[in-house]
């Protein structure tokens, strides 16, 4: 991610595609939810261990809230009408403070995902790893990427 000054900034966002056996999952980590104005969806709690294989991974994994940024997106108008761009970037530290500045104005922030549940998952995973109960397996199948001719399509909203 590049900010207005052309500086590279840490991107905190990402999308993961995962598969799993529904029947072995606990309802504590997989909940059917409904977001006002969005619709029905699933809230998933998932823990991913990051093997620190080299200095670069260590540097990225150690990034603090102050170093991780997210774009401010106008979901009211710009996003549904495919208008590119954003209203600037804010760090996770700013977001978690409860207030950010957008175009000089204070705007209240609220999270959508649970920090306390995330910590619970992280400590469970840590416990498994320390006890040697967490084992890595070979990937079942690799996911398609743009290199495989995979393209994403957007659905235009009416």
């Amino acid at each position: 991610m590049i900010n207005v000054e052309g500086k590279e900034i840490g991107s905190a966002g990402g999308t993961l595609a995962v598969t799993g056996d529904l029947k072995q999952m606990s309802p504590r980590w997989l909940i059917g939810t409904s977001y006002l104005g969005y619709g029905a969806t699933l809230s998933v709690g998932i823990g991913i261990p990051i093997p620190i294989l080299n200095e670069e991974i260590a540097r990225y994994a150690a990034m603090k809230d102050e170093e991780l940024f997210a774009p401010v997106v106008d979901y009211g108008e710009a996003y549904p009408s495919f208008t590119p761009g954003n209203l600037g970037y804010v760090s996770y530290a700013e977001l978690k403070s409860g207030k950010i500045k957008v175009n000089g104005k204070d705007v209240i922030t609220a999270p959508l995902s649970s920090m306390s549940r995330a910590r619970e998952i992280a400590s469970t995973l840590k416990g498994w790893i320390q006890k040697g109960e967490f084992q890595l397996t070979e990937p079942v199948k690799t996911l398609p990427s743009p290199a495989d001719g995979f393209t994403a399509h957007s659905i235009k909203e009416a």
């Binding site: 909940i31 609220a110 999270p111 959508l112 995902s113 649970s114 920090m115």
Partner: peptide, 18 residues
């Protein structure tokens, strides 16, 4: 409640808070 915090942005009195 999973303590996601979505409600804290909308509660007008601060009854729900981070």
């Amino acid at each position: 409640c999973v303590m996601c915090g979505a409600c804290t942005g909308i509660c007008p009195t601060g009854a729900l808070y981070m």
